Amino acid sequence: MKYYIVDVFAQEKYNGNQLAVFVDAGSLTSHQMQRITKEINYSETTFITNNQSREGGYDVRIFTPAQELPFAGHPTLGTAYIIQQEIVKQPVEKVTLNLKVGQIPVSLHYSDNSVDLLWMQQKPPIFGQKFDKEAIAQVLNLPINDIDSNFPIQEVSTGLPIIIVPLKTLAAVKKAKVNLELYFELISNTEAKAILIFCPETYHQENNLNVRVFCDYFGVPEDPATGSANGCLAGYLANYAYFDADSIDIRVEQGYEIGRDSLLLLKAQKTNADIDVFVGGKVIMVAKGEFV
């Protein structure tokens, strides 16, 4: 089987979030997909199960080393890129993925006939339960005053639920360390199984937020660039007017603490009924190969 390795949300090779994409993988069982994903051992691996479009989209399954996911951000962008490059093989404005969460459209933008930027529109955010900051501070091994009490700690989902935690400073983000016993105790009673922490201080002045995402439940202690979680964050920021507005158009840095510098672009707009959420970034081809 042919497979491809790409770096998603990367400004250059060997940064961003690694993704392996298998094409024409419909003959594989779920068990085989899970074992292959564990063998590769990236945050996620995707399987395009049919190289022909169906109902306007391509059937794709997403796995972490621990389990299958209904939706994930960087696999969506990276897989759309491979579909355009290796299956469609011509410039198109949009590639749609048929995921377990439903159809997710990805728009492609070009420079000199090469894909320069990809954007996905995520599902409108659903806001779930809120959390006590003392309990979350203990999970993150942080003093309670590192948490920004002007905004809630809340479960948000645009396809995959995430616990959003606002912190005050970059120093607080950098020193956060998950207490695994308390983490697994917390998520035993929550729909969300991953935690996103963020702050308005950044490594680079041109960026607006710094983010880290912890997801041991999925077999990934820390993710270098998380499109799904940042989509939830985009909805959260617009809903609570974090930047004193009900819309955002920002740059988010992630992955610096684990040596995989990443850049995610977030847009969100609060409307009468919902919040429109878009997450964008670059995808860079790194390798091509075969599983034998």
Rank of each mutant, 00 (worst) to 15 (best):
P166G: 10
A172Y: 03
I162D: 15
I147Q: 13
V173A: 12
Q154E: 13
I164E: 08
Q154K: 14
A171S: 15
K175M: 10
D146S: 15
A172T: 00
F151M: 01
N150M: 09
I163G: 10
L170S: 03
S157D: 13
I163R: 07
P161W: 01
K168Q: 09
D148R: 13
I162R: 07
P152S: 07
D146P: 08
V165M: 07
V156C: 10
P152K: 10
I153W: 10
P152D: 07
L167M: 04
D148M: 09
V165S: 12
K175H: 06
P161I: 02
I153K: 14
P152M: 02
T169A: 02
L170F: 11
D148T: 01
D146W: 13
P161L: 02
K168R: 15
V165N: 13
I164Q: 06
I147N: 12
L160M: 06
F151D: 06
K174V: 04
F151R: 09
V156P: 08
L170H: 06
Q154M: 15
A171M: 14
D146M: 15
V173T: 02
P166M: 04
T169S: 15
V156T: 04
K174H: 08
P161N: 03
V156G: 13
K168N: 14
I153V: 14
D146V: 03
P152L: 05
S157W: 05
P152E: 08
K174W: 00
I153Y: 07
V156L: 07
V173Y: 10
T169R: 13
V165R: 15
P161H: 01
L167T: 03
T158F: 02
V156W: 05
L160D: 05
E155N: 10
I164F: 08
I147W: 13
S157F: 01
I147T: 05
G159D: 01
V156N: 07
N150G: 06
I162N: 13
A172C: 02
E155I: 04
D148C: 12
P152V: 01
V165A: 06
A171G: 07
P166A: 10
L160F: 04
V173M: 05
P161G: 07
F151N: 03
I164L: 15
I162Y: 13
E155M: 01
I162G: 06
P152N: 09
I164T: 03
L170R: 07
T169Q: 09
I153E: 14
G159F: 00
A171E: 15
I163K: 04
K175E: 10
D148Q: 08
A172R: 08
F151S: 05
I164C: 06
I164A: 11
A172H: 08
V173I: 02
I163C: 10
I162W: 12
P161M: 00
A172V: 00
I164V: 11
N150W: 09
L160T: 05
L160E: 11
I162A: 08
I163L: 13
L167W: 12
A171T: 12
V165F: 09
T158D: 01
P166E: 09
I163F: 06
